[in-house]
Amino acid sequence: MKILVCISKTPDTTSKISFKENNTKFEESGVQWIINPYDEWYALVRAIELKEKDASIQLHLISVGGADYDPVIRKALALGGDEAIRINATNNDSYFIAVQIAEVAKQGGYDLILTGKETIDYNSSSVGGMLAELLDVPYISLATKVEVNNSAATVNREIEGGEETDEVSLPVVISCQKGVAEQRIPNMRGIMAARTKPLKVIEPAAVEALTNVVSYELPAPKAGVKLVAADNVQELVRLLHEEAKVI
């Protein structure tokens, strides 16, 4: 069996967010990069778990990005996986990314393709679905549990107020979230092995992006907090009525 895990790099959750070039690009200087947590903790770790149970599984990682992706990819390889492929292109458009991955996936004959449910930066959550469509295979989103046996997968997914269990035949694309696996820390041997694992860089397929970002905006800064004494209900009501205008 062959598994492909899609890996994005995202800013560390404590990064300071700002924009440049007239608010059309994210300011990357000084930002610490991490593997998108949904890709890492859930998709990648689950794939590693499956490989630990069945050593014959081939596990490949794929990213779309420039050379600045390499440290993040090697960090992912330190956790596990046999090799990684980086498609040498920088474009945040989901369709563009999905087409690039699909081109590789078609050649690779993967049985299971895992993604995170979203990236924690641009939040578009669309690559998985587009990828499935481009490959003409089923897509299951928001998985909380993924089991695989031979030619089929059993997937639990979150629905409003409950959970749904699906059966699907392989190949399939699944987007993963909390529950699929637990976060792992790479160990020393994994880190040492990462250096010698193949990281293939290939050139992108010719495709136009479907969207173009016009601008980014930061949320309005939080307003100050007004404290009202616990016994002064009248003042609270007055403020809610006159200033906040919510009652």
Binding site: P71, R74, K75, A78, Q183, I185, P186, N187, M188, I191, M192, A194, R195
Partner: peptide, 18 residues
Amino acid sequence: SEEQQMIMDMCSQFIQTE
């Protein structure tokens, strides 16, 4: 090196999570 930085990060992660 990249490997040494990864090892430093791994140690911090171990302290943070474990």
